[in-house]
Design a protein around this nucleic acid. Sequence first.
DNA 1: CTGAAAGCGCTAACAC
DNA 2: GTGTTAGCGCTTTCAG
Lengths: 329, 329
Amino acid sequence: MTESSRGRPTMKDVAAVAGVALKTVSRVVNGEPGVNPATAERVASAIERLGYRRNESARVLRRGRTASIGLVIEDLADPFYSGFSRAVEDVALRHGSLLVSGSSGEDPRRERELALAFCSRGVDGLIIVPAGTDHDYLRPELGAGVAAVFADRPGGLDTDTVLCDNAGGARAGVAHLIRHGHRRVAFVGDSAPIFTSGERLRGYRRALGEAGLPFDASLVATGPARQAGPALVRMLSGDDPPTAVFTGNGRITVAALRTGHRPALVGFDDFELADLLDPGVTVVAQDPVRLGGTAAELLFRRLSGDHGPPERIELPTRLIPRGSGELPP
Amino acid sequence: MTESSRGRPTMKDVAAVAGVALKTVSRVVNGEPGVNPATAERVASAIERLGYRRNESARVLRRGRTASIGLVIEDLADPFYSGFSRAVEDVALRHGSLLVSGSSGEDPRRERELALAFCSRGVDGLIIVPAGTDHDYLRPELGAGVAAVFADRPGGLDTDTVLCDNAGGARAGVAHLIRHGHRRVAFVGDSAPIFTSGERLRGYRRALGEAGLPFDASLVATGPARQAGPALVRMLSGDDPPTAVFTGNGRITVAALRTGHRPALVGFDDFELADLLDPGVTVVAQDPVRLGGTAAELLFRRLSGDHGPPERIELPTRLIPRGSGELPP
DNA sequence: CTGAAAGCGCTAACAC
DNA sequence: GTGTTAGCGCTTTCAG
């Protein structure tokens, strides 16, 4: 062994073996110009022989940038977010960055912990699906040069944000049901304080209003997905039950399907096999891959020096009729 | 501003503000014992005032450990791996570690790149779902003290490995079809060189053998998931078609369902909504969450100093009859 | 084209 | 209890 005792070889070890100065090794490792090809060759073979690999931690300490970005989402196991994350990963890869990620589980404290832990590790930028609304904790980090993009929901800071058209999508979905003759349309959605849930509820009310239908609070149920099924069953077995249901996200749509009841149904979010059920499930689809990709592109644009004013991008949704939304009352 | 020019405040800055030595700040930040409560309080308030946060890169450079682990999977967007990843994340969180992850896309070169990039960043350990079979590239890293666990498939190195009982599961699934009267059972699976695919095919053959049925190569199709549908259709429309199909993974099961044909079917891997289709899809379920959790626990056990011989754990599968596997020939 | 020296922010080892 | 010193492995000056 040539290197100093146990542990990985360092540039110093490589330099010793190649018979050059440490700085020359650095030049070769980083592909800097201005090294004699013969020297470079000697260094390269020393690197090979020693199995040398650059220590990123040391490099980061010196340079300040890590070529990594942090991602905070709600739950990696949710298909929506896993597609989203994969898109972010792909963009990161294309920009030579690694991805550090964590799930907040809709807990603002955990979101904060994760984001700050990522910053401590010197990520160059953050993509955050906000669990909370207060993001003052990020101020010092942004001041220190970390870029941040909010995705899926707006955060409590004026930075780049990528959303999808929640209200418009919900409005289109509910209007679709009304167009098919329904006058009592229920809304079963996520917990009310969640931004996307509120927006979708807003779209629901708007569609009702535009059709001249009254808003009936007894037709609205919001809460965690696991309560959605029972809530829907209660509604359907009450007096003057709804003939159609709009579900506020993919998990709730599935919960609704599991109740065994089959009212006319349009759900927010597309999901695998929606087309194979009987009837096929009509959905308002958003595109998690595009959402993630857009957020990541925005982030890397900032990282490469764009200092324009914060952008707010809203992606469109798409209504996909498959049968359940076209059932008559 | 008290701290040196722009950029984040350092321990030095905190020390200056608190009127103590740098080392005292270090003690407080790391919760080391032996600091006068009053002093600690002064330091704490200086930290608060300055918005100080410990620089992990510097800490890592000094200590050698990062409190982070690396995860290489096939595709984060695949529900199987997203459940798996989430389980790893949860265990990592419990051990105070962050997760750096990347998708190999079944490309051994990319697997290697990711794993080595993680090592360069000083991850304490790796969990790898091998895309390739040669893992010599990891030898220097293991030598330098990085722990590694292979999951879902064995790697080319004698380290801890967590698999599921692929052959046994497939055998049980195929036997189930045979028990329901089928004598011509097709196998549609993933590309042959993939470990899990080979094992499942082995289980298929074994079940045939045990039932005294001949192996007929024309009833076997292996390849990427997108070719599975057409291959199945070809089989079903040939002379003497199969009356039942065993599909080798979740994606292929879905592809089979999309063909519109409805032979008796048992699929490897459970998937959401399998029970809501008509008929419900009988599956051999493995548990990605348990697989990921087990791999992570194994890794952290090594990281906390267990030097026992490499373990190889095989998790059981579970046959879930739902209708499609009980159809008569 | 190549090298020597300084120092990134922190922790480990040892004083006081 | 607290402070001083050295140095982790690298990049950044600045000199040859």
